[in-house]
Design a protein around this nucleic acid. Structure first.
Ligand code: SF4
Ligand code: SF4
Lengths: 132, 132
DNA sequence: TTCAAATACTACTTTTTGGTAGTAATTAAA
DNA sequence: TTTAATTACTACCAAAAAGTAGTATTTGAA
């Protein structure tokens, strides 16, 4: 179980933007402060912007900031960064239900629930759970 | 959060060997039954054998089987398959303690505990927890 | 209107992971 | 002792992720 480099970068970035809610953060600063390669960072930022995860202001004195009204969960980030790889199940058999479950299914349930509830399904800004 | 292809293969293999505790399972069968590329599988198996995770019998009528006395946890598999990538923390800041923790630390605790206790730290053969 | 500093875009290179190919070594039954 | 089926070894190839380079576009202040 692994968090991809890109996901780790993304989480760091969002945490930073959350700290700096009021102002704009520019790529140069983010790169320096978070120790992320500048060019790689800008690539990620553009993707975020396109997916309306954050807002970008172009031109001189531009930068990035969180969209105040928007709830972003860690799961949203995983999906965006890792795409298909971010799945709920370890083994990924095509057919499985209660009757025909794999060796790991039961052991996987508790961690899975905890991940979804406490971790994935919470807002990045301050961690207020989306539901329940 | 992602389980690498190799880890997924490994888990499937160990589950299969566990089903077939009595006999030997050979690479050809494992490859066919678990839908894992034959050559890639044999590569993994050799690594497992070298790390004494399983036992291999060479030559005709050979194959692989679990070592009865041995406890293998899912975490052992992760470490073997993913090496350095398998970590306990998402963000991997170098310096962090209770006083200086990152944005995600608290939200990460519960899932982390559950993963370690219920999932990672349990024996692959039937999931008897190693400790507590 | 000019210009400097910022994001956006396109294309490439490097590193890591996943997968293949071919051959050598091992083994037990015939 | 021969042989066929098996694991082990070495080397390579392909695909994906991570990182880099250069240029175009945008923007607000001077
Ligand atoms: S039985 Fe459960 S753990 Fe196993 S493959 Fe299906 S969903 Fe995943
Ligand atoms: S504070 Fe906790 S979650 Fe954050 S980097 Fe450190 S150990 Fe990881």
């Amino acid at each position: 179980m692994v968090f991809s480099t890109t996901t780790q970068y993304a989480l760091k970035i969002l945490a930073y933007l959350n700290e700096n809610k009021e102002g704009l953060s520019n790529a140069k600063t983010l790169s320096r402060e978070l120790d992320i390669p500048y060019k790689y960072l800008t690539k990620i930022m553009t993707k975020f912007t396109k997916n309306e995860m954050i807002e970008s202001i172009q031109g001189r004195y531009g930068g990035f900031k969180l969209i105040n009204s928007k709830i972003i969960t860690i799961y949203d980030i995983l999906k965006l960064c890792d795409g298909d790889r971010a799945k709920d199940c370890i083994i990924e058999k095509i057919e499985c239900d209660e009757k025909k479950k794999c060796h790991y299914h039961d052991a996987w349930q508790k961690p899975k629930e905890s991940i979804k509830k406490d971790f994935l399904n919470t807002n990045v800004k301050g961690f207020i759970s989306k539901e329940s």
